[in-house]
Design a protein around this nucleic acid. Structure first.
Length: 493
RNA sequence: GGCCCUAUGGUCAAGUGGUUAAGACACCGCCCUUUCACGGCGGUAACCGGGGUUCGAAUCCCCGUAGGGUCACCA
């Protein structure tokens, strides 16, 4: 049996799209599930759309997401390197290869030179549209003899090479999620295979590369479904073994259109920057378009690999549901290794000028406690900034009138001085103190329940809601609390 | 418009001729908690329409309808 080999083959035109990540993920999961190989190939045959740095960005996003590949283009010390037996893995470095196969097609009569100008093509399409016909190449150069064509080329005329499709022929292929697809050649154009700049089009390059690289399963977006017959035809005329096709449903916006920028984030790096954990994003994304047999929804990469199959990929496009992503991600935040989570959280605190490098280093243990106490309410790490603000500002401002009025209650001065007395009796707040202080104050003042806890909370944070008082007191420490009590007494009492 | 694909709650989705049509997110209620969150329990809510086939259709077929994709020297 052939070794299972799959590839992810993006174009370096920008960032990695969230839909692209899912395609890469499904490829990866299936390859790993079958102990196969996963390959990253770069499809840069459109020189006009090439974006500097896009390949590096793509690789970094994949790496961040935890999707590893065995062959292809890698980033090492900031430089692109290629590894694997089937290289090069960047299509612009494979031009001679495509050329050779294009020549073979021409020789065998499966492709022909075409000298039609862009202007003529546009005009033909225009006229066809007016007549209500399907815009399609009219086949003018189809009848040109090879000799005539070669003569034109010798005279320096620009040309492309087109696929010569047989008329009125059904082309069938099986798709693992959609079943058998049949399309008639009358509905397909004589696709350009080789562009006038000497670069192949996607349709030529993808077939040649997938064959040469031993790709067994082609897993890609649904948008490729209707051009698959062209690829299948090429496999047939070359006499190559066809791969298994899998066309994935689209990831959609709320408006059921393809996920696009105007509705929010679509780049993998945007989610990383917002503080989504790779485990969370991957877990959620796996669930848009696929479900495991047991319907378990919280899955690690290892579990995904174990459970993944194309039989359970759905046929319908799924809306990218940020609420559910948040839920999945919050699960990972709650259970993440605390050191790792703290390391990931620190950049956000720095960015918000809550802490600096020195603070991060010297008070790392304190930061860990901080992260631990607020992690439960977070759906992504960038939200931590709002949650921890109360720990960094001793100038208490009641968040609203309700909070203010609670601070103005008659018994508050007694409460605060009792608190102060307890604090002055110790060197520093420890866990024991934090745990018992409220009871002591209650005993000393006779104030209890809501009249006790809420005013203290507001005096210490200004807010009605927040983490447990015990944690707040522990995290704040003696001096901060004394400062806050003093501030509140001066400002509000 | 031609061709191709698709159609279960607001969303993701189980379901492959016989089920009280799962589960999750979101939403609502209750409990837990002297706050919020977490957690627990419960609730609202779905088979696009019409014809067939069948003893019996969410499941099979046909016709509509709706949505998506594609019709480039872009991938």
């Amino acid at each position: 049996m052939r070794e299972v080999r799959l590839r992810f083959a993006p174009s370096p035109t920008g960032y990695l799209h969230i839909g692209g990540l899912r395609t890469a993920l499904y490829n990866y999961l299936f390859a790993k599930h079958n102990n196969g190989k996963f390959i990253l190939r770069i499809e840069d045959t459109d020189r006009t759309r090439y974006v500097e740095g896009a390949i590096e960005n793509l690789i970094e996003s994949l790496q961040w997401a935890g999707i590893e590949y065995d062959e292809g283009v890698f980033l090492e010390d900031g430089k692109l390197v290629q590894r694997g037996e089937y290289g090069p893995y960047i299509q612009s470095e494979r031009l001679e290869i495509y050329r050779k196969y294009v020549d073979e097609l021409i020789e065998k009569g499966y492709a022909y030179y075409c000298f039609c100008s862009k202007e003529r093509l546009d005009k033909v399409r225009e006229e066809q549209k007016i007549k209500g016909l399907i815009p399609k190449y009219d086949g003018l150069c189809r009848s040109l003899s090879l000799e005539e064509a070669k003569e034109k080329i010798a005279n320096g005329e620009e040309y492309v090479v087109r696929l010569k499709l047989p008329p009125n022929t059904d082309i069938k292929f099986d798709d693992l999620v959609r079943g058998t697809i049949t399309i008639n050649t009358n509905d397909i154009d004589d696709q350009v295979l080789l562009k006038s700049d000497g670069y192949p089009t996607y349709h030529m390059a993808v077939v040649v590369d997938d064959h040469l690289m031993g790709i067994t399963h082609i897993v890609r977006g649904e948008e490729w479904l209707s051009s698959t017959p062209k690829h299948v035809y090429l496999y047939e005329v070359f006499g190559w073994e066809k791969p298994v096709y899998v066309h994935l449903p689209t990831v959609l916006n709320k408006d059921r259109k393809k996920l696009s920028k105007r509705h929010g984030d679509v780049a993998v790096e945007d989610f990383r920057d917002k503080g989504y954990l790779p485990e969370g994003l991957i877990n959620y994304l796996a669930l848009v378009g696929w479900s495991p047999e047991d319907n378990e929804e919280l899955l690690t990469m290892e579990e995904l690999i174990e459970k993944f199959s194309f039989e359970r990929v759905s046929k319908t496009g799924g809306i990218f549901d940020k609420d559910k992503l948040d839920w999945v991600n919050s699960h990972y935040i709650k259970n993440y290794d605390l050191d790792k989570l703290t390391d990931l959280a620190i950049p956000y605190l720095k960015e918000a000028n809550l802490i600096d490098d020195k603070f991060a280093e010297e008070r790392y243990d304190w930061l860990k406690v901080l992260v631990e106490t607020v992690r439960e309410g977070l759906s992504n790490l960038s939200e931590i900034v709002d949650k921890v603000g109360i720990f960094f500002d001793n100038e208490i401002k009641p968040e609203n009138d309700e909070a203010l009025s609670m601070l103005k209650m008659d018994h508050i001065p007694t409460l605060l001085s009792a608190f102060r007395e307890e604090l002055e009796a110790i060197d520093e707040v420890d866990e024991e103190f934090a745990k018992t202080i409220m009871k002591k104050i209650q005993k000393a003042t006779g104030i209890k329940g809501k009249n006790l806890f809420m005013p203290v909370r507001i005096a210490l944070t200004g807010n009605i809601h927040g983490p447990e008082l015990t944690s707040i007191i522990y995290l704040l420490g003696k001096q901060n609390i004394l400062n806050r009590i003093e501030y509140v007494e001066k400002q509000y009492l």
